[in-house]
Design a protein around this nucleic acid. Sequence first.
DNA 1: GGCTGACCTTCCCACTATGGGAAGGCGTAC
DNA 2: GTACGCCTTCCCATAGTGGGAAGGTCAGCC
Lengths: 140, 140
Amino acid sequence: MNIGEAARASGVTAKMIRYYESVGLLAAKARTSAGYRVYGPQEVHSLRFIRQARRLGFLVEDIRRLLALWHDRSRASAEVKAIALEHVAELDRRINELTDMRDTLAHLADHCHGDERPDCPIIERLADTDLVSGKGCHPI
Amino acid sequence: MNIGEAARASGVTAKMIRYYESVGLLAAKARTSAGYRVYGPQEVHSLRFIRQARRLGFLVEDIRRLLALWHDRSRASAEVKAIALEHVAELDRRINELTDMRDTLAHLADHCHGDERPDCPIIERLADTDLVSGKGCHPI
DNA sequence: GGCTGACCTTCCCACTATGGGAAGGCGTAC
DNA sequence: GTACGCCTTCCCATAGTGGGAAGGTCAGCC
């Protein structure tokens, strides 16, 4: 199986397969005499694993650890769980950050007439020099 | 006022002030004979505006438009509101995406013993070849 | 044997916004 | 004059992905 077939079989683009190889996530099984990468079902399985993990937002660095644990038949599930929970915490941080932005902005937009007049609490808020970065508060 | 003072006055690093200049967001008022950038209160005000907008997650491209509207005394608030709502929608997309990841992963972790045994629904899910990408669904 | 089209290879570039750092020129206080 | 802090420009790195160029390869078809 060459890289194009592996890409179609795994749902990972050929470009990304080469990238994952370059960062040490997954090496091709072999090369043909012409230098073509050769993959087997096992590599495709790994690529799907990587794709699933990426879909859950894991960084390549985390995936490296998860792959190692996957291949380690004697792993402790506690190790996997720790990585997962760490990532959940990271996702929570990012969600909270974005939600703060969203709420502040939605609140401001809610108080903006949105007509032809120039008065606009959104612009006023951005231009307000007295802001001391009250994260999550949105006084109009 | 040189770039260091403007940085302290605005909360934007000197590095970023130069970057914003390079992408056409904000030019220095002038240069000294030695080539030092010179800023006045107006530039500092703009820098604060930019900082506020970045804090709300606006892209530099959006900020370019917001700055133009800010300086246009005859702007229609509808234009500002449109940009804001577009950004709220983008934030919602990202929040939903992250929340889907978070919920799926938290659910998996919840069903993982997290002890010394190797059995782990998290790893199993990642390695599951029959996944057809059911976004937001998490069958264990 | 030769052509064609699809595929492969490596290498470089771009993106976003930010930081680090080097090399060299100023400015000010002593 | 010298030492220290600030300024300048320029290059590099980040994370993950895509685009594309230049050139080699393979399979089918005449």
